[in-house]
Amino acid sequence: MDLSAISPTLLIASLMVAATPILLAAIGEMVVEKAGVLNLGVEGMMIMGAICGFIIGVETGSPWLGFLAAALGGAVLALLFGVLTQVLLSNQVATGLALTLFGLGLSALLGQGYVGVKAQTLGRIDLGPLSDLPFVGRVVFGHDPIVYLSLALVVAVWAFLKFSRAGLILRAVGESHEAAHALGYHVRRVRLAAIAFGGACAGLGGAYLSLVRVPQWTEGMTAGAGWIALAIVVFASWRAGRVLVGAYLFGGITVLQLNLQTAGAKVPVELLSAAPYLVTILVLVLISRRAGRAGAAPADLGKPFHASA
């Protein structure tokens, strides 16, 4: 085994890339759940984002327009879920699962002509001398813009929920929609907005896969990333900072296990392959336990709301 072959700089740089799709999807889903809605369709919205972003990215030649289309595609699919669950009061769990199946199927249909096509990808930003610094140059200043966008989004969501009035209303809707309604807030409107935001984030995450990380379109290419994002939200006990930890941990161990294999570590390959799931769950459970468990989940999570009730 030659562990010195693993460069910490490159390891951290590639773990950030591997974690970004999950981070984007998870931070969006966290906002949705904070508003009291459980949307299990993250996987479907991600893959819709992946194909919408890829198609527009290929057709226009602009990855930026691709990401915009991905956010829109994810949001539109999410609003379908929103209308069904918030207006027509369908069951959230069943509708979310259906959304995943629908997204996988629809994306495969849309992507028929795009298999094996090459898209313009987003390059790393170039900050001149800053990007040439040892270690920090690559880790801090050497990524593509979406990585920074995802980190900024985490901070923005944290600040929004903690300090802004709108964030307080969103949390109130999630904790007790009856009380929020009695105070005159539009529960349904707030939730629909949160659902659309969650869909847009998932869409961005999907497009990051098809436009940057792979980069190409393949049916079913999200390969379960949406479910990982869902799990991370729960194990991170609905805190933005912990979502970041969870996503980077998962991405980090995925990349680390491949690096360990390449370096010839004397660990069974099967164990290495399972490690990202095991370690992420373990660590997040431990930090949630230490932080106290009471009231981590929004009290009205997954409950239907009707103004007449």
Partner: peptide, 20 residues
């Protein structure tokens, strides 16, 4: 452990490239 998973194949290739 897959015949076809572009994300994983890309990550595996990157890990190799990172290690020289």
């Amino acid at each position: 452990y897959t015949w076809f998973d572009p994300a994983k194949e890309a990550d595996a290739a990157r890990a190799m490239i990172d290690q020289g």
